[in-house]
């Protein structure tokens, strides 16, 4: 499965409870109240386990984690050899 599908599926299943509605790959996760700070930690844990990456504290930025699109770009960059 593509990274984008895995990330989208995870968020839809765990934070939207299967109801994707108007959710898109550019929807802001925080501004739309989809995740709170605890939820963000859960996403980080999911990304670290699923994609075998390590996310540093200074990388906790909206540009890396605030939407499916941003997360996918961030994961791809982290996975580059």
């Amino acid at each position: 499965m593509e990274i984008i599908d895995q990330v989208r599926d995870y968020i839809v299943k765990n934070f939207l409870f299967g109801d994707a509605g108007a959710f898109t790959d550019t929807t802001s996760l925080l501004e739309n109240g989809i995740v709170d700070s605890t939820g963000l930690l859960e996403i980080i844990q999911f990304l670290e386990t699923t994609f075998a990456i390590s996310i540093q504290d200074h990388e906790l930025l909206p540009v890396n984690l605030n939407s499916v699109e941003n997360i996918v770009r961030f994961v791809r960059e982290k996975k580059k050899p």
């Binding site: 925080l30 504290d57 200074h58 990388e59 930025l61 909206p62 605030n66």
Partner: peptide, 9 residues
């Protein structure tokens, strides 16, 4: 700042 989750920012 309403995005405390992004502590870096």
């Amino acid at each position: 700042n309403n995005q405390f989750s992004f502590t870096g920012a």
